[in-house]
Computed example of a mutant assay.
Amino acid sequence: MAATYAMLAGESLGLGTCMLGGIHPLIQQGRKAKAFREAHGIRSASREGLFVIFGYPRLRYHQGIQRTFASIDWAR
């Protein structure tokens, strides 16, 4: 839930956001993983499974994609 609020806050400031899941195994083993953890202050025994990245978009669009949503059929 906190990641969602962080993404909304970033978007309101004009930042692009992307939620990345499944990072945990990639930051736990190996020399590069150790350097990454040290650079970002992540404990070795951490259990993070979700990262949110922020950045300024490279491209600006004048108009978004027009989408249509399918109808919803309820089954009981």
Rank of each mutant, 00 (worst) to 15 (best):
H24K: 02
G55Q: 12
L20D: 02
A75G: 08
Y61H: 13
R31W: 06
G55C: 10
I65A: 09
M19N: 08
F36N: 01
F51S: 01
H62R: 14
V52W: 09
L13I: 09
A33R: 05
L13N: 14
R58S: 10
L13M: 15
L15Y: 15
K32W: 05
R58A: 11
T68I: 04
I27Q: 00
R67M: 06
E38L: 11
A9K: 12
P25H: 04
L8T: 08
R60P: 03
Y56R: 15
I53M: 14
Q66H: 09
A39K: 14
K34L: 09
V52E: 13
R47S: 04
L59D: 15
Q63M: 03
I72Q: 08
F69T: 06
I42K: 01
A9G: 14
A75K: 13
G49A: 04
F36E: 00
R60C: 06
G55P: 09
Q28L: 05
R67Q: 10
G22L: 01
L8N: 10
G49E: 00
R37P: 00
W74D: 11
S12F: 09
F69E: 06
I53P: 10
G22W: 01
I42C: 03
G16Q: 14
G16K: 15
G10M: 06
F54W: 14
K32P: 03
E11G: 04
